[in-house]
Design a protein around this nucleic acid. Structure first.
Lengths: 131, 131
DNA sequence: ATTTACACTATCAATTAGATAGGATTGATT
DNA sequence: AATCAATCCTATCTAATTGATAGTGTAAAT
């Protein structure tokens, strides 16, 4: 039950951009320095956020990254799902045939509930709620 | 963000014992068969539940395992914490000095909230609620 | 005394996490 | 057009963790 580094760094990146005044972008290098993340490692995170349409690059004098939409319109789940398709604390929740017990598993019902709780928390929290 | 096998199997074991009529115990072997878990693997799970005082062995004619207390008095968290000390989705939540950003990390505040949500769900769900 | 169940220790293969390396490409500034 | 910094892509590596099995020892019941 750990949140992995990419998701954590991804969220921190989005938060940093959300906190910036929106006239200028923030360079990857700056994010690396502020967040104490290696610039190389960010190489594997930033492109994902970009591909999912959460951030984009502006060019010119004030070059760097900005959010593509206001922080009010981005949820934690948007960031999470850039890296993992779904909130899924147990494989059997979304795949059939993994476990023989599935149709009768009471434990699974609980894990499914817990999964929903986590999912909802992420979907109901906007980046703007955090800052 | 996965729940590991020991915790899952541990919960299933507790549920099976909770469902049994309380006159007789259930042998480890029976649990293995019912739950489709190898008896050998249960060797590394059952003793932990026992050490934590959740189950105990009865001897004699109806030998096997039983719950030490009624299902109303056991929470999912009791089972979870037999295997992992705390609900902790991020190391920095309970350890200082792991991350430089800790004092100023807004993301951490969110993860901390999410952690509480998970923790509460487990602590507020009794085994008797599941069956 | 023998059988059955449980306990203890060690080991192992597979997977994943976290991170780095090196180079190609892109775009802005000169 | 040249140069320089930033970004992107692919490959690689180590360490830790997970899930599981093997083998043996011990205890209790019939």
């Amino acid at each position: 039950m750990k949140v992995n580094t990419k998701i954590r760094y991804g969220l921190r990146t989005i938060i940093q951009l959300a906190q910036a005044d929106d006239n200028s972008g923030i360079l990857q290098k700056q994010i690396a320095q502020t967040q104490h993340i290696s610039n190389k490692y960010l190489d594997s995170i930033i492109p994902i956020l970009k591909a999912k349409g959460l951030i984009r690059n502006i060019h010119g004098k004030k070059s760097g990254y900005i959010l593509t939409r206001p922080a009010e319109e981005i949820t934690v789940f948007d960031v999470y799902s850039a890296f993992e398709h779904k909130v899924c604390i147990l494989d059997c929740l979304y795949q059939t045939g993994i476990c023989d017990m599935e149709p009768v598993c009471i434990a699974r019902d609980f894990w499914n509930d817990l999964n929903s709780v986590i999912d909802s928390k992420m979907k109901n929290t906007k980046i703007s709620d955090l800052i």
